[in-house]
Write a protein that binds this DNA or RNA. Structure first.
Length: 574
RNA sequence: CGGUUCGUAGCUCAGUUGGCAGAGCACGUGACUCUUAAUCUCGGGGUCGUGGGUUCGAAUCCCACCGAACCGACCA
């Protein structure tokens, strides 16, 4: 019994059921394949035909509800595609005198949460419910932990589990009891597949590049650091894969793309997880105008793949992904929302403008960051419908080609939707001398105190020195795109396992530690139940009260243990 | 990192002015051969997040800590 002490009453009952099943010769975790012929979806889709033909099916899944009557019962079986009602009649599954399988196994030893196989006939009940009439019932996996019960009637859901702690920490439970969550992740996969098929149809190559990088390049962000023992060097988890993909363009591929996990050691909130998925694509001989068209086409395809239309709902907003999207330069956007023309303004003038607009700044900010702050605080939130913001200041885009008409700017665009950045793209910088100078500018910013200025990657510069074709690249946040496409407001809802602080279990001493104090093993669970989880916690406890409590507990719960003597207890608390 | 809110049975949640710890579902028992949030009988189940404090007495009031959500800060 001591072994079971940590378990709840219901868990103990289920573990006992395991033993009962084994005694009856039923393996609760059989090894053999179960010959599934249909999913619940297959049956419901073709129900009229199958029920008329009294089709025989084998289905498998989890019991999620039971309605037991005397010698006939119904339960609901849920599989990947949905759920269907199953009818079990005692004399059908127990044709002989021995009714154990129904009376004991099905009614007593099976529970909600167990995974079973059902062989039976498709039929409709008198109440009109699509059902399967069981001829053979097989236990496939016993569940010994009770599942949260969610009930439903007429589309209304009762007692749904919304506690984010359980939903994210125990995603498997979330997926079992909240079917719309499974749907979200199916759509996430569809988003990625649609993009991949689009790229492959154009002949672009899917590639893989290093996650562990000696120089974390391609973006402005704080990296995670780790250490390689054999090489005895620090390595960084990638913050972007841009520099590697461009090396491959140098190598002669016309188009390369990668769906990549990136890692950034920064804050977490509703739109940021420390690891997240980005798709980056680079295509030779193109520029950022071409890339805008390409991006529009891609997103329109994704929206149609998920919703069958370009119009989607996101929170209280309706967003239309129909081409073409609005295009506006950053300067014009700032003019539109603040009335101020920043063209040709010096760093000091920009500082003054920020002060007037009540945009927060600090001394480490250069010209580019100041402009970005104005845009971020005054403009971003207005970009609800898909909008390309073009032509960023050169200072904040060190990997981007100078604008063909204005050397202060770069040929860069970002796509904003619902006030959030979704894509980032350039006409890629391929002038190796300019690139080295821009890296050196970053070094100066870093010396000025900007802790996310880029490192200099000399090998990347060397690659450019061999010559990279003109090229356009684009990166898109897959998690955010999925949030839009599945109408989820939180990144945690589109990641199976969002990062969370680890659970902490209260520390408990084992029985041996108590034994060293002369405390018999059988009293350990009782002491722990009373809150004395460690031997140390017993120190200086009033021996008299503890003695009374222990004897009282023994009596009240009819444990039949031999009570310790007062002297014993005194020695325990010394 | 700061502000707000929350943490009570396996799950969803009540809990009044500080006065015996509650309900529904789930679980156990018994009845029931077409039920569907099945129904009906009886029953068991609690470290009230953790630790301290105030009090004759704390789920409730105070402090600290742990965890979560939201809003900011930082950050793309």
């Amino acid at each position: 019994m001591a072994f079971y002490d940590e378990l709840s009453e219901q868990e103990i009952i289920r573990r006992n059921s395991l033993e009962e099943l084994r005694k009856l010769g039923i393996n609760p975790y059989p090894a053999a394949e179960y010959p599934v012929t249909h999913t619940t979806g297959d049956i419901l889709k073709d129900f009229e035909n199958m029920s008329t033909k009294r089709a025989e099916v084998c289905i498998a899944g989890r019991i999620i509800a039971r309605r037991i009557m005397g010698s006939a019962s119904f339960f609901e079986l849920q599989d990947e595609k949905g759920k269907i009602q199953v009818y079990v009649k005692r004399d059908d599954i127990c044709p002989t005198e021995d009714k154990t399988l129904y009376n004991t196994v099905f009614k007593k030893l099976l529970d909600i949460g167990d995974i079973v196989g059902v062989k039976g006939i498709v039929f409709r009940t008198q109440m009109g419910e699509e059902s399967v009439h069981t001829t053979e019932l097989t236990l496939l996996s016993k569940s010994i932990r009770p599942l949260p019960i969610v009930k439903e009637k007429d589309g209304k859901v009762f007692d749904a589990v919304t506690d984010s702690e359980m939903r994210y920490r125990q995603r498997y439970v979330d997926l079992i009891i909240n079917p719309q969550v499974r749907e979200t992740f199916i759509n996430r996969s569809k988003v990625i597949n649609t993009m991949r098929e689009f790229f492959n149809s154009k002949g672009y190559l899917e590639v893989e590049t290093p996650i562990l990088q000696p120089i974390p390049g391609g973006a402005a962000a704080r990296p995670f650091v780790t250490h390689h023992n054999a090489l005895d060097i620090p390595l960084y988890l990638r913050i972007a894969n841009e520099l590697y993909l461009k090396r491959l363009i140098v190598g002669g591929y016309n188009g390369v793309y990668e769906f990549a996990k990136d890692f950034r050691n920064e804050g977490m909130d509703r739109t940021h997880n420390p690891e997240f998925t980005v798709m980056e694509i680079y295509i030779a001989y193109k520029d950022y105008f071409w890339m805008m068209n390409f991006t529009e086409e891609m997103l329109e395809k994704v929206a149609i793949a998920i919703h069958g239309t370009t119009k989607i709902t996101f929170g209280d907003k309706e967003i239309d992904f129909k081409r073409p999207f609005r295009r506006i330069t950053m300067t014009d956007a700032i003019k539109e929302y603040t009335g101020i023309d920043i063209t040709g303004k010096s760093e000091n003038e920009l500082r003054t403008i920020c002060k007037e607009l009540e945009v927060e700044v600090d001394d480490t900010m250069g010209k580019g960051k100041l402009i970005d702050s104005i845009f971020g605080e005054k403009c971003e939130e207005h970009m609800i419908q898909p909008t390309f913001i073009m032509d960023y200041p050169i200072e904040m885009s060190p990997l981007c080609k100078r604008h063909r008409n204005n050397p202060e700017l770069t040929e860069r665009f970002e796509l904003f939707i619902a006030g959030k950045e979704l894509c980032n793209a350039y006409s890629e910088l391929n002038d190796p001398i300019d690139q080295l100078e821009r890296f050196q500018e970053q070094l100066k910013l870093s010396e000025k105190g900007d802790d996310e200025a880029m490192f200099i990657d000399m090998d990347f510069v060397r690659a450019l020195e061999y010559g990279m074709p003109t090229c356009s690249g684009m990166g898109i946040g897959i998690d955010r795109l999925t949030m839009f496409m599945t109408n989820n407001q939180s990144i945690q809802d589109v990641l199976f396992f969002p990062q969370m602080r680890p659970e902490k279990k209260p520390q408990k001493d084992n029985a041996e530690a108590y034994a060293q104090k002369g405390i018999p093993t059988e009293w350990v669970p009782i002491l722990q139940k009373m809150g004395f989880n460690t031997v140390a916690s017993l120190a200086n406890v009033a021996a008299g009260k503890l003695f009374n409590d222990l004897c009282g507990y023994n009596k009240k719960n009819k444990l039949g243990l031999k009570n310790p003597s007062m002297d014993d207890v005194k020695s325990w608390v010394e």
